[in-house]
């Protein structure tokens, strides 16, 4: 039996009727056509499907859309403001934080939570907090540099890490 859910996605309330077995990632990609969130491994390992749900980074391939009823979701499409990249996005571009780009939306959403929890992270904290995200291109060094740079940029601007959510 279908259920009607109401989810605020990137600031916009979306009411849709969905099957209970629909996964959140397919709700975002196939129902709302927000295809920035990727399906990688589909087994809760790789983190490509990471989105922010009520302020927490979650793997949207392992959550039912009905579980997100009433939640606030931010996807990669919700980070840039008025055509300007979010500081984490800008830092990924500047510091070679991506190569093929497939893991990048999930990596950036995980980095967003990381910088909210650890605004001035050590390299160990960055590595540890990216445990749930796999990149097969960069060898991670560019990603770590990008996150360090994003932390500096956000601190310099006095910008709360939550900006853009």
């Amino acid at each position: 039996m279908k259920r009607t859910i109401s989810v605020t996605v990137n600031g916009k309330v979306r009411r849709e009727s969905v099957e209970p077995r629909l996964l959140l990632v397919h709700f975002l990609r196939d129902v709302l056509r927000l295809t920035g969130t990727h399906v990688g491994c589909d087994t809760s390992q790789c983190g490509a499907c990471t989105v922010s749900m009520n302020g927490l980074a979650v793997k949207s391939c392992t959550i039912l859309a009905v579980q997100a009823d009433g939640a606030e979701i931010t996807t990669i499409e919700g980070l840039a403001r008025d055509g300007a990249l979010h500081p984490i996005q800008a830092a990924f571009r500047e510091h070679h934080g991506l190569q093929c780009g497939f893991c990048t939306p999930g990596m950036i959403m995980a980095a967003k939570q990381l910088l909210e929890r650890y605004p001035a992270p050590t390299i160990e904290q960055i590595r540890d907090q990216l445990d749930g995200n796999i990149c097969r291109c960069t060898g991670y060094h560019g990603i770590i540099k990008a996150i360090e740079a994003a932390a500096r940029a956000m601190a310099e601007k006095g910008q709360a890490p939550t900006t853009g959510s």
């Binding site: 793997k59 995980a110 749930g132």
Partner: peptide, 9 residues
């Protein structure tokens, strides 16, 4: 346990 995303849920 697991990774940060899994620990959130």
């Amino acid at each position: 346990i697991a990774d940060p995303q899994v620990r959130n849920r």
